[in-house]
Amino acid sequence: MLHIKCPHCGLRSQNEFSYGGDGTIKRPELNKEISDQDWNNFVYNRKSPRGKHVELWQHISGCRQWIKVQRDTVTHEIFQTADVKQDIK
């Protein structure tokens, strides 16, 4: 079982969290013309990296906030967590 450090509540069990997908995806700018291919990539296409990966999680049974988590997809080690507005380098 993973233990994730919520930036608001502290170290909690993975059971309290809900996975929210890739945390590096950025929505195309509003009112900007983009190609169908770019929109398709934004909506559907995701990488499946091996190693460090920034993900979104929601502390659904806790403070209900979205957070960013940097996790190794091979070892499941969690290196860093941050509020969703902060960047993880």
Binding site: M1, C9, L11, R12, S13, N15, E16, I60, S61, G62, C63, R64
Partner: peptide, 21 residues
């Protein structure tokens, strides 16, 4: 799954109990 050893008076938290929030 919360570590209740650190729970002190006038602390509160949200968690789950057998799947119930």
């Amino acid at each position: 799954p919360f570590n209740f050893n650190i729970l002190k008076k006038n602390m509160c938290l949200n968690s789950i109990f057998n799947g119930v929030t």
